[in-house]
Amino acid sequence: MQAFRELDRVLRGDARPGEPVPLWPLLRVNALLAASYGVCMGIYALARPDGVEWRQPLAGALKVPALFALTLLVTFPSLYVFNTLLGPRLRLGVLLRLGVAALSVLTAVLSAFGPIVAFFSVTTANYPFVVLLNVAVFALAGAFGLGFLRKLLTQLAPPRGLETQDFVVVDRPSGHAVIYGWMAVFGLVGGQMSWLLRPFIGAPELPFAWLRPRDGSFFEGVTRAVKLLLGAV
């Protein structure tokens, strides 16, 4: 419950980067929320034509937290380095807390859409529709998370005594470029990471697999889903 109270504090915007945001409780609750969304994604496989596939929601519960952990792992080092080179020159601990706070917003929005996704997954046979619905929900949650990060970074006020060491208010174009650039990279890497970790939903014509072989890309997958939905394939 302590972890959820911390999450609530972050979501309400009460937590400021200068304050100690407890990392581990937030990470735990992030993992839990991401896992709950993973289960909602996998619910589609419970109505497979060849029978109920219980492993798919389980795989989702493991893979969605892994998706975020791996995406952060890939993108965070470069964010830290460019943050130091171009601004806003935040210390590692501060930047990490900011990142986890933004991730909390993302996973909270994502899991809040879980019931809607689960409902559509249960009632919809059309696979491309479910894929695109999930892509849209991820994009929306990502927009909220990254918007939250941008707000924190651009409104960051330097606490007294730390002006030159820990905090620099982002008022230079290069500082903004780092934030926007990283947001774009986070989205691209997250998209491709989700492709590598697929299947999350489970195409009905393919047997269940924990992971699929290396082939194609996230963007090819989404384009194909759009074409399938429009009946062009």
Partner: peptide, 18 residues
């Protein structure tokens, strides 16, 4: 209403309208 409320709640919270 029940299906749409959780996301509406979180969005309100994140936008500072809690």
């Amino acid at each position: 209403t029940a299906l749409a409320l959780p996301s509406f709640f979180v969005i309100n919270t994140v936008l500072g309208l809690r």
